[in-house]
């Protein structure tokens, strides 16, 4: 991995930090010169991942969320969002669109579906009782023009 730039962010899993986290990551990736749609995609994907940590990983408790963002060669953004929360017993099930364990709180069950569709790649690693990490990548400036 050819890393051109890197930043790390640690913050408490309180909902006030959802806005802070997505804004901070978008500020960092501004040097890749993304267009408005790319910024929106990144902002939304980060918001989903951080919300998952708050709603699910640290349910009923407060822990630390760690975000690592990197700018890679080829104008690619790398984002890793990590928690030390409860972990996901069945990742495949958790990633199914509309599946949620928090329906009574009006969670739509779309977090991973949004991350998957708004970013180029999504990897989820989890161990029950130890935590979860979500890694997303997106190439910036790829314009899908017809040839």
């Amino acid at each position: 991995m050819n890393v051109k730039n890197e930043m790390k962010l640690c913050f408490k899993s309180i909902s006030e930090n959802e806005g802070f986290a997505r804004t901070a990551v978008c500020g960092f990736c501004a040097m890749l010169d993304p267009n408005i749609e790319e910024i929106s995609d990144i902002r939304t994907a980060v918001s989903e991942a951080v919300t998952n940590c708050i709603v699910h990983a640290y349910r009923g408790t407060i822990g630390t969320i760690e975000i690592t963002a990197k700018i890679l060669a080829g104008n690619e953004l790398y984002i890793k969002i990590k928690d030390k929360g409860c972990g996901i017993p069945d990742i495949e099930k958790a990633m199914e669109p509309l599946y949620t364990t928090a329906a009574c709180e009006e969670r739509a069950g779309l977090g991973f579906a949004v991350m998957e569709s708004f970013m180029d790649s999504l990897k989820v690693k989890s161990a029950v009782g130890r935590g979860t990490s979500v890694t997303m990548r997106k190439k910036i400036g790829v314009r899908y023009e017809q040839t």
Binding site: S40, S47, T51, E106, R107, A108, L110
Partner: peptide, 9 residues
């Protein structure tokens, strides 16, 4: 801005 929380709403 809106994420999937808005869909839940």
């Amino acid at each position: 801005f809106m994420d999937s929380s808005g869909v839940g709403l």
